[in-house]
Simulated scan of single mutants.
Amino acid sequence: MLPWFPVHPLWRGAMSGHRLSRRSVLALLASLGACGAAGRPAWSQNASPMLARPIPHNPAETLPVVGVGTAANFSGDPGRAGLMAVIKALVAGGGSVIDTAPSYGEAESVIGDILTQTGLGRRVFIATKLEDYQPGRLAPEARAPLQRLRTAKLDLLQLHNVHDPGQRLAELNSLKDLGICRYTGITTTYRSAYGAVESILKREQPDFLEIDYAIDNRDVEARILPAARDAGTAVLVALPLGRGGLFRKVRGKPLPDFASEFDCKSWSQFFLKFLLGNPAVTAVIPGTDKAEHMIDNLAAGQGRLPDAAMRTRMVRYLETLG
């Protein structure tokens, strides 16, 4: 389990929005490298911790509430310096969850290389997926991600985009006994599969569910999240910043004054804190390939979170923006 890392002072000035100066980013990354070499952060005094939540099937283990997704953004950057900066920022900021999949281009291999080069492999929680899975073939299929990620064991292995309400998880769960993974779960980002997901949650009670959820995409609140709560299933939120429309809606608009009541300093934090204000959510995994965005996102896991009344106010405010 990743130990908590406090927040670098440079980050505090970065929390006002997504943009950092190039000079600030370079200074931050230089300090991250120095801290990695020292084995511990040099700014350990007077910093706010990242909020962490327990994994319901193993309450002794907690996960930091903000991680990173790697779909569509971890296959470029041939030199990988930018992507390495994202992972360093994640860890230095107290995060640990890295979500990936074989279908995300070269993401698994890129992550494996970065974790090997930085020595951060033992400080992250790696979640990946099985796709086009066939009965009797899960074990050999699962060994390919192990090789690409260059790890002896996965933290979480999920059946990707489930759609069959009769899906059984016994064979998937057997991979834990084989030492391939520590936790198992299911995913979908398709509303058409919500019925199947609900059935699987109620019958199989998986360790984890990864599902799409955002302030402008709240359908899971009615049945899926309650079913996950009843099953003791941890919830990773995919697409927590929406599918593109949220930032278009707020472009050029200031945050509402009430955002300060839950320590929010950017629109990204506004959207993420809305989700984290729901206790059914274990962690959010916004995708990014930019260190400054990673830093901004991590701040959503610090300070106060909106309560139910405030979350309603947030939705209503967003609706007034047209």
Rank of each mutant, 00 (worst) to 15 (best):
F208R: 05
K265L: 09
L90I: 10
L26K: 15
F258Y: 07
C264L: 03
T320P: 03
G95I: 05
G13Q: 14
I295D: 06
L169C: 09
A234I: 04
N297L: 04
L149S: 04
Q134N: 01
W4D: 14
R311V: 04
T320C: 02
F274E: 00
E108C: 09
S199K: 13
E292W: 04
T184F: 09
A299P: 01
E61M: 10
V220R: 03
V65R: 02
L146G: 06
W267A: 01
G82W: 01
E171R: 06
A92L: 00
D132R: 12
T118E: 12
A234T: 02
Q45C: 01
Q158A: 11
Q269V: 01
M314T: 06
L276H: 10
A144W: 01
K202S: 12
K273E: 09
Q147M: 08
Q45G: 06
Y183F: 15
L225R: 03
V91C: 09
M50G: 01
P49S: 08
N73H: 10
A81W: 03
C35Q: 12
T128G: 10
R22E: 15
F5H: 14
A309E: 13
A27K: 08
L63Q: 02
G36W: 04
T282G: 03
G179C: 08
D99N: 13
L63E: 11
L115F: 10
C264I: 04
R251S: 15
L51A: 14
L318F: 10
F270T: 03
G252Q: 06
V315T: 14
G185W: 02
P256F: 04
P78I: 09
A107C: 06
E210A: 14
D177Q: 15
R137L: 13
S24V: 15
L156E: 09
E319M: 07
R12E: 14
A227W: 02
E171P: 13
G79E: 15
D216R: 10
P240Q: 07
R168N: 09
